[in-house]
Design a protein around this nucleic acid. Structure first.
Lengths: 141, 141
DNA sequence: ACAAATTGTTAGGTTTGCCTTACACTCATG
DNA sequence: CATGAGTGTAAGGCAAACCTAACAATTTGT
């Protein structure tokens, strides 16, 4: 008997995150639309959705809209928070352009540890509360 | 005719980085030792070395020591610098423990863009030159 | 110098995640 | 209510990166 793995692959995290964002924005989402957004074939999306259903992170009936479970939301929020924390840090603190900040965040969000993420968040918050730091830093550039 | 891809996979970057570090430390390195260090089978290492040889990043004759080419060094240094910059940032600036800093750096080094890496380095340098920032930050924790 | 240990390679397998093709099912609109 | 557009999925493939097992080649130690 194979015990189901709780840890998601980068790919599944991307699917789940996209589903979560659509949920937040109250945008109905079917498999085909998800495939378009992620630029992946409908067939691959179909497989991935089965896996997420098996892990009880989403609910899905063919031809209906995808919905996310409470457990799915919990996981998605963690990823999404990492994404945002990284993006903000890159943009606000070290001065990376929006697009590049986004791209790097998208990749790093899947591999960074919870603790490092927490520390980056804390540090970003600290810099916001002490804007003279960033002002000084920007002056040097 | 297929043009050879210059961009290395994460895996090949790890092999190359390890080879480079052994080179720096002047430690002789054979395939079997590399396999031990990376905790990967000798068979897989054998395949990987062939790829690195094909890309002219290393030189290797069976049963001899692996050596790294100039081009290999260039690539390895880029990766190694990213690794170090990330590790230092994690440890010195945001206060992550050595082991965790190392682990995160090992993964992120393969996916972070050159520009984000440069900015993280710059920011780390800035914090070193202004130690009151980190002192203040640490006081809050 | 020869046996034992080490090192390297080959062959064949597994897994993951993607693909295309082809077909089936459903929906929506004239 | 039929048909075309949209959606879903099964089958079969491919490539990457790993594995084990078995064997071959080399090196080492006595």
């Amino acid at each position: 008997m194979i015990t189901k793995n709780k840890q998601l692959s980068s790919g599944l995290e991307d699917y789940l995150e996209t589903i979560y964002i659509a949920h937040i924005k109250k945008q109905p989402l079917k498999g085909a639309e998800l495939a378009r957004q992620l630029n992946i074939s409908r067939a691959s999306v179909s497989e991935a959705l089965s896996k997420l259903v098996a892990k009880k992170l989403i609910k899905y009936d063919s031809y209906k809209e995808i919905s996310i479970t409470e457990e799915g939301k919990e996981q998605a929020i963690k990823i999404y928070n990492k994404h945002n924390a990284l993006k903000h840090f890159f943009e606000e603190i070290i001065g990376v352009e929006k697009k590049e900040a986004e791209e790097n965040a998208c990749k790093i969000e899947h591999i960074i540890s919870q603790n490092v993420f927490d520390k980056i968040s804390d540090f970003t918050q600290f810099c916001r509360e002490n804007p003279e730091i960033i002002n000084k830093y920007k002056k040097l550039k």
